[in-house]
Design a protein around this nucleic acid. Structure first.
Length: 961
RNA sequence: GCGGGGGUUGCCGAGCCUGGUCAAAGGCGGUGGACUCAAGAUCCACUCCCGCAGGGGUUCGAGGGUUCAAAUCCCUCCCCCCGCACCA
């Protein structure tokens, strides 16, 4: 058994000792700069992460072998609240957290308790992550390692510079923002902070202020998601049993009296409104009163409806029976229920005479779609909630997408457009307000309290909604490569809908906002341009080690020069004086940046497209010159474990490090790279990994064996030529795949296909042990090891050494197809032989010729070849026939010729290349015989079984007896 | 709801952009065989249906359409996955 572990450690040590992956500026070489989203270290990396980080390493290794000067750096992300939260939970001995860290991440107990301090969590997992990456064989330039937040001051200064720059450009703004809020604890709630209902969306209700005449001006704000239907209101609904309040509502300098449900008053108090309750009463008090529609001026009556939920929005509902199923059904119910009408002293004629107002024309429906839909579904009454909701959904959807509005001044517009227009117009006139509400009531914080929607003020935003900025982002995307290309649309869409993004919060680790230190820059905002920091990071680290760096001296002016300006000695002198950093060192940083930037590739998993990766584009175009805009993004999918989603809380996680310990880094790398491609997901199956390990051992053994052979220049036999030709194909295809980050295809060519071809070759050459074969295998070994080097670098180094290769395989030249090795003809001959063997086997099985002794093979006669070639050229029956018949020899067998042409046309056998069938057969005779266990007779004079005439080019006739 | 991506032969998963050479790569699983005392590993063959001569038939979410020809192009419908932000 191959000792992977020893081999891996041996080469990891050598790489590190010889600084193989710490590139220096080298202007004689093209540079290649690739980065991957740094990990957030709240735990160990698992096998899903392995994919994300192995891809750039493979690509980096590939490019390095192609002769590029490659920079592949790494750093650690510790910004944000989760790590602090974990420390908190450890402190409180939260069992779930302790389970995860003790059992899943296997943190030793004495260290575990030190996690009460978040700094210790960070320290522990940074160390572990680095160890993991080293053991995985990643060719990372560790001289540039750093981590985020104020715990690493130089980087913090860099982030300060970024934010000052953005602010100067007017891209950081202050404003209000709605958040989920725990009203008891008094904190904003992120997804992690929510126990139940984390996926409940927040809806924006329009509150249309109907006017209740009662001496004073009282508003009854009806909440709706369909503001356009205000034109079709026939009445109002209140729940007679619910508690409503009359309250003074102060909003800004406006003060009004509203009637809303008690719950609504509470909720609105979090949404920029001061509420002073004047009176509390049951809904029934207002039933039968009249209000004025603020848009149409209509006088309408307030009617009772039990479907009205006081705990949804304002608890005041306007009734649009033509287009809202609930409203229509409630009216029908009322008509039948004279008792209630009597109770509230409502004249039944009001209902009888009520006429529905049709607002929207909708194909497939008449004037009142809601009525039709209700009838269609057979809704009984307003208690028939399920069907009513179904009907509402259908009508809403249909009208929104296909409906055309019929009322002036919006006549002829699509409902989807009118909706927003009307709401906007009403808000401007002051006849409408708005309210945020959860789409579902059950949103519970992890503190066990029911959440509300709160409007936060003084929040800092990055204004991704800025139109000029968006335009620049589009422009950058246009010039970028995106792998897979199919993801480009998503980037485009994200750029379009991205708007103000809160960029700071009050808790968690991070860099304080330079102008407002109470706020800490959050994690998606301090991770957008750090690729530029890597270029100067080595220098900074060196200064730190030599104790020559005072981070405070890393001023915006310095960063401006390094990242934004042209080379300028005068400026360098000036900065040197100001910062105490020598001019040479400033120069060095500037040169590093100018040499490595722009970034060639940014890699990450696909979940970061809607945020990090797009922010990355935005921030680059905002800050850097166009020549420094990023050039490409490659996204990858996730991983599952034996078909199950990995979940640390369930303990269903395979740590990257454990996988390496179990299987060896090379096996893990090759397995993951060969398992899926681009953005598709992979599934880790233990059994398959085990199998692959065996195959890699086989690879190791084979190459080891071949390494003892000599690469003599000896005239190869045809099958040797075939092998070399196939090797050329593998080189070409693997290279093409890697250029596009298609790792799975690359592995298929670089590993499996060569393995299969080699298997065939060894079978074909069984019993042969001559110089030509040995030379062929030796050549194969030298190519194969290099093709495998990006995927299985340790074993490749080991084998490269055995082969006597110079230096590291990691630094040797990537193979290119050898022009003399190309040989299409031999490839065709080989597949011809293979096809023939398959044919014979099929004949034997179908005809059940168990006792066959001999197979007679007849190759196509010369004239058939000539016809085939002609047909391949003409690709048309008439043209071919006409041409062939010019030949008197052919005319003699006119009928046969015409049949042949017909068949060739039908089979579309148009890309014939001529091979010497008889020669190929003779050379492979022994092999064919041993494969099928019959004696082979090639082109005998006697036409056995009358089969001879069936022979076609590339498909010989066969008779078996 | 909005936005993005998908539905392929037992399963996973290529191919579809650039229609034909696609019954459709590869892997897994299954069956049979070689090897072995045996197991494992390895190797070989088969794995939609039919077929006593290398052939034929029916397939690529459903239904239409374009075409001499569609898994591949167009339309309609159904279903699945992911994101919708202050959270890494």
């Amino acid at each position: 058994m191959v000792d992977f572990k020893t081999i891996e450690e041996k080469w990891q040590t050598r790489w590190s000792q010889e600084k193989v992956f710490e590139p220096q500026i080298d202007k004689s070489k093209p540079k290649f700069y690739i980065t991957v989203a740094f990990p957030y270290l709240s735990g160990h990396l698992h096998v899903g992460h392995a994919r994300t980080y192995t891809i750039p390493d493979v690509i980096a290794r590939f490019k390095r072998m192609q002769g590029y000067n490659v920079l592949f750096p790494m750093a650690w992300h510790i910004t944000g609240a989760p790590i602090v939260g974990i420390a908190e939970r450890i402190k409180h001995r939260d069992p779930q957290t302790i389970y995860v860290y003790k059992e899943v991440y296997k943190v030793p107990e004495d260290i575990l308790w030190s996690f009460e301090d978040p700094k210790n969590i960070v320290k522990y997992f940074m160390k572990a992550a680095k160890e993991t990456f080293i053991k995985a064989g990643f060719g990372v330039d560790w001289s540039r390692e750093f981590h985020t937040t104020s715990l690493f001051p130089p980087f913090s200064k860099f982030i300060e510079w970024q934010f000052l720059t953005l602010k100067e450009k007017g891209l950081v703004v202050k404003g209000a923002h709605r958040v989920r809020w725990d009203p008891i604890v008094g904190t904003a709630l992120g997804d992690h902070d929510i126990m139940e209902g984390e996926d409940v969306p927040i809806l924006e209700y329009v509150l249309i202020k109907f006017v209740l005449k009662d001496g004073e001006r009282i508003y009854l704000p009806a909440a709706t998601l369909r503001a356009e239907t205000v034109y079709g209101v026939t009445n109002m609904w209140l729940n007679p049993e619910a508690t409503y309040v009359k309250a003074k509502i102060k909003s800004g300098d406006k003060e009004e009296i509203w009637v809303i449900s008690k719950e609504a008053a509470y909720k609105l108090s979090f949404q920029d409104k001061e509420i002073e309750i004047i009176e509390e009463f049951k809904g029934e008090k207002l039933i039968g009163r009249w209000v004025e529609n603020p848009v149409t001026g209509d006088e309408i009556i307030i009617l009772p409806a039990e479907f009205v939920d006081p705990d949804n929005a304002t608890g005041v509902v306007m009734s649009v029976p033509a287009h809202a199923p609930f409203d229509h059904v409630a009216i029908e119910d009322l008509k039948k229920n004279t008792e209630i009408l009597m109770k509230y002293d409502i004249d039944p004629r009001i209902l009888e005479e009520m006429s529905y107002i049709s607002l929207i024309s909708l194909e497939g429906y008449g004037e009142f779609p809601a009525v039709e839909e209700v009838e269609k579904l057979g809704v009984k009454d307003q208690k028939d909630i399920e069907k009513l909701e179904q009907a509402t959904k259908t009508i809403y959807k249909e009208e929104f997408h296909k409906g055309v509005f019929k009322i002036e001044p919006y006549k002829g517009m699509k409902v989807s457009e009118v909706k927003e227009r009307i709401a906007k117009d009403m808000k401007e006139k002051g006849t409408a307000d708005m309210m945020y509400e959860f789409a579902d009531k059950k949103v519970i914080s992890r503190f066990g309290n029911r959440a509300v929607v709160k409007i936060l003020h003084d929040q800092w935003f990055i204004d991704y909604g800025n139109p000029e900025w968006k335009e620049k982002a589009r422009e950058a995307l246009e010039d970028m490569k995106i792998f897979p290309e199919s993801r480009r649309n998503q980037f485009k869409a994200v750029i379009e809908w991205l708007d103000k993004k809160a960029c700071a919060r009050k808790i968690g680790l991070g860099t304080p906002l330079p102008w407002d230190k109470e706020w800490v820059i959050e994690s998606l905002s301090d991770s957008t341009i750090y690729m530029a920091y890597y270029t100067i990071s080595r220098t900074i680290n060196r200064l730190r080690e030599e104790n020559l760096l005072n981070p405070e001296k890393l001023t915006p002016e310095l960063f401006d020069y390094i990242f934004l300006m042209k080379f300028d000695e005068e400026k360098e002198r000036e900065l040197s004086e100001k910062t105490g950093i020598s001019r040479e060192v400033i120069r060095e940083m500037k040169e590093e940046f100018e040499y490595w930037y722009p970034l060639d590739w940014r890699c990450s998993a696909k979940d970061l497209i809607p945020n990090h990766l797009t922010f990355f584009i935005f921030n680059h175009v905002a800050i850097f010159r166009k020549e420094h805009w990023p050039k490409g993004i490659a996204v990858n999918g996730f991983g599952t474990l034996e078909g199950q989603k990995m979940s640390k809380s369930k303990g269903n996680v395979l740590n990257f490090l454990d996988a390496i310990e179990e299987n060896g880094a090379d096996v893990v790398r090759l397995y993951i790279m060969g398992l899926a491609e681009h953005d598709s997901d992979f599934d880790w199956r233990r059994k398959e990994v085990g199998k692959l390990r065996k195959q890699i051992e086989r690879f190791y053994d084979l190459i080891s064996e071949f390494s003892s052979y000599e690469n003599k220049e000896i005239e190869p036999m045809d099958i040797d030529k075939w092998m070399l030709h196939r090797l050329n194909v593998a080189i070409k295809e693997a290279t093409a795949a890697l250029e596009e980050f298609r790792t799975r295809t690359a592995v298929q060519w670089a590993f499996y296909n060569i393995l299969n071809d080699l298997r065939w070759y060894l079978r074909r050459t069984e019993g042969r042990d001559d110089e030509a074969k040995r030379a062929t295998l030796r050549k194969l070994a030298e190519v194969w090891v290099r093709l495998m080097a990006p995927f299985t670098p340790h074993i490749a180094e080991e084998l490269w050494e055995k082969l006597g290769g110079e230096g590291f395989v990691s630094l040797t030249k990537w193979p290119e197809p050898v022009p003399e090795w190309w040989n299409e003809t031999i490839e065709l001959e080989e597949s011809y032989i293979k096809g023939l063997i398959d044919d014979i086997k099929e004949i034997i099985s179908v005809a059940r010729l168990e006792n066959a002794r001999r197979a007679y093979i007849y190759t196509a006669e010369e004239w058939k070849w000539r016809v085939a070639e002609l047909v391949a050229e003409k690709r048309d029956f008439k043209a071919s026939m006409g041409e062939v018949m010019k030949d008197p020899e052919m005319r003699k067998r006119g009928k046969e010729v015409s049949k042949l042409i017909q068949k060739l046309i039908k089979d579309r056998a148009f890309d014939f290349k001529r091979i010497d069938e008889e020669k190929a057969l003779k050379q492979a005779k022994d092999f064919i015989e041993s494969e099928i266990g019959l004696e082979i007779i090639i082109n005998p004079d006697e036409d056995k079984g009358g089969k001879k005439r069936q022979a076609m080019p590339m498909k010989p006739a066969v008779f078996i007896e």
